[in-house]
């Protein structure tokens, strides 16, 4: 290509023209995001500063919605529930995923490995309506778990009417749905380890258990960090699970902040309250992601 002494702007224009076909290929996606991502975001932020009225234009009321939001006991409770269930779930799921991955990695039998992996992974593909539906039934008064308790001569447990059971049930079903997925990802990082590393440790006299502690676990660490970082942005986004599994008696313990937004904004049409709650959650999510990123000294990935 011959470089002529042109002005930079016209050079840029020529390059833009050269890439016109390429730009056209990304145009639909950009238009889509403009309408379905950026516009709702801005609209939401504007609405959170307004007072909705049945007739006429909405009135600008500054931060009044935020003030009433922060005084709303239900919102604060929902925020706390989400934070509690979200962060414990993340830690529990990664931990059970690690245990499962290490345990599978020690198996010789390929068939057993594949079977266990498939069965534990499947619930990850199921929606919360499925997993929630299954466990609401399994834990119900006449369900499987109470049937087993009966058989053992123990008292039945009313999982959905005793508030103390609310959070454990949510954490357990979350682990049931997600652990297999985490295990698959963590196992992939174990399979990638050169067998000679283990062999060398073996020759140096390290027992297999020591090798797990000194080789397997450290080798999983980068994946664990990534999973923590990705999971952190989802900590406050629990909705489907509670929409399906929450019952009046346990709602005070498990109702999430997204459920609050849905109920206030869509069912009760309190737009100002709901949009300001969404803005608070969005800001909190950013802060959490930033904090985890800082803490894990993340080195870059797909998202850079």
């Amino acid at each position: 290509m011959q470089i002529s002494p042109r002005r930079p702007s016209s050079l840029l224009r020529r390059r833009l023209r050269q890439y016109r076909a390429i730009y056209l290929m990304i145009l639909p996606v950009l238009v889509y995001f403009l309408i379905f991502s950026f516009y709702p975001l801005i609209l939401g932020l504007v609405q959170s500063l307004q007072k909705e009225r049945l007739l006429g234009t909405p009135q600008f009321i500054g931060l009044a919605n935020y003030q009433s939001l922060l005084r709303d006991r239900n919102f604060l409770q929902a925020l706390w529930n989400s934070l509690y269930i979200g962060s414990f779930s993340l830690v529990i799921n990664i931990f059970t995923g690690m245990v499962l991955a290490v345990s599978l990695n020690e198996l010789r039998s390929r068939a057993v490995k594949a079977t266990v992996q498939t069965v534990t992974f499947l619930p990850y593909l199921f929606s919360w309506t499925v997993v929630g539906g299954v466990w609401v039934y399994v834990l119900s008064h006449n369900g499987l778990v109470n049937g087993m308790l009966d058989a053992l001569g123990l008292d039945r447990i009313s999982f959905f009417t005793v508030p103390a059971w609310g959070r454990p049930v949510m954490l357990f079903t979350n682990a049931w749905k997600q652990s297999g997925y985490f295990a698959v990802l963590l196992l992939a990082s174990l399979v990638g380890i050169d067998p000679e590393v283990y062999e060398a440790a073996h020759i140096d006299g390290a027992s297999r258990l020591q090798q797990i502690g000194r080789i397997s676990l450290p080798m999983m660490l980068p994946t664990v960090k990534t999973l923590l970082l990705l999971g952190a942005t989802g900590v406050l986004r629990n909705f489907d699970q509670v929409l399906i599994m929450s019952r009046p008696a346990i709602k005070d313990k498990v109702g999430s902040v997204l459920l609050f937004i849905y109920e206030q904004g869509i069912l009760k049409m309190k737009i100002g309250l709901a949009t300001s709650a969404a803005a608070v959650v969005l800001a909190a999510t950013f802060l959490i992601a930033l904090a985890v990123r800082r803490a894990s000294r993340y080195e870059g990935s797909l998202y850079d």
Binding site: Y39, L41, G44, Q47, L258, I261, V281, L282, T285
Partner: peptide, 10 residues
């Protein structure tokens, strides 16, 4: 970073 579920109302 702007998940649909957080902009549900809008």
């Amino acid at each position: 970073m702007i998940p649909g579920d957080l902009t549900l109302i809008s």
